[in-house]
Design a binder for these strands. Sequence first.
DNA 1: GTTCCCCTGCGG
DNA 2: CCGCAGGGGAAC
Length: 291
Amino acid sequence: MPELPEVETTRRRIEPVLLDREIAAVHTTRPSYFFLTPPARLRRALAGQRTLALARHGKYLLAQLDSGQQLLLHLGMTGQLFTSNAASPRLLSATARAALSPEQQQAFKPDVHTHLRLRFEDGGPELYFRDVRKFGKVRLLDRGQLDPRLARLGPDALAIKAEALFRATSSRKVAIKSLLLDQGVLAGVGNIYADEALFLAGVHPERAAHRVTREECRRIVRSLRRVLRRAIDTGGSSISDFVAPDGADGHYQDERWVYARAGNACRRCRATIQRRVLGQRSTHFCAGCQR
DNA sequence: GTTCCCCTGCGG
DNA sequence: CCGCAGGGGAAC
C-alpha cells in the first residue's frame, strides 16, 4: 500500500515524535512473520533506548537507536504508523467508521492489528504500528549488521539518474512497468506511481523495457520525480488504507491521471482509461496518450 | 519470465 | 459467494 510518498510522509511526521525520547516499555502481539525479530527479543532490546534519527530507504524506514542498533520497518500493504493522539477515524474503513458512535470516533484504541506499541518515559504520546494484513515487517539490526533487503535496493526513485535507468532497461524483456516496480532497479516506486509516471512520460506500461529509448528514460525519470514530489507535497494518496500519522488523509488521489480510473475519460485526451493485469498487478493507462 | 503465497477486510 | 487491494519473496 504505502509507496515512497506515503513512507516519506510517515517519516517526516513520525521522526519528531520519536527523536530523543526514551522508550519505557514495548508491547507486541504474538509472533508472526510480521516480526522478523521475535517479539520477545524486540521488547527487551528496545526498552531504555532513544532514537537518534529516522531515515527512509525506498519504502523502508530505519530508526537509528542510541545503542548503535537499528530498527527496520516496512509498512507492507496496510501498515500504519501513528501516535496515540492521532485523530483516529481514518484508521478504520469507512463502513467500520460509520458503525462507531461519535464518542468512539474520538480516540483510537489499540486493537488486534496493532502489533507494536512503544511507550515513553515522558508519558507523552505512544507510537503505534498497526497492520491489518501483516505484510509489513519489523526487524532489529545489531550494530554493523546489514539487512539483505536494504542491501539489494537500487537508488532511491527521487535520486536515480536517467542513464542508470536506461542501463537497467537494456537486455531486459520485462514490461517497463514491471521494471519500475523492481526495487533492485530503483527503490520506492509502487503500483500507483509507476502507472502515474508512465502516463506523464507517454510510455505504454506493457512496452518491453529494452524497447524504451534513452530519451524516454529521461522522461520517465523526470515524471517520477514530478509525481513523487507532488504526492509528498499533498501528503500521499489515501485511496484505500493510507492515513498519515496524525490521522489526516493524503490528497494525491484527487490529482491522479490514470490509477484506478479505468472506464473514466483521460483527463488529457478524453479517451477511456484502460485497466489490464500485468505481473499480477492492476495496471492503468491511456492508449491515446501512451505508446 | 509467470504463479502462488503470506493476511484480512471491503464491496459487488 | 467472489474478486479485489498501493508489497515482496519464493517456487515453478
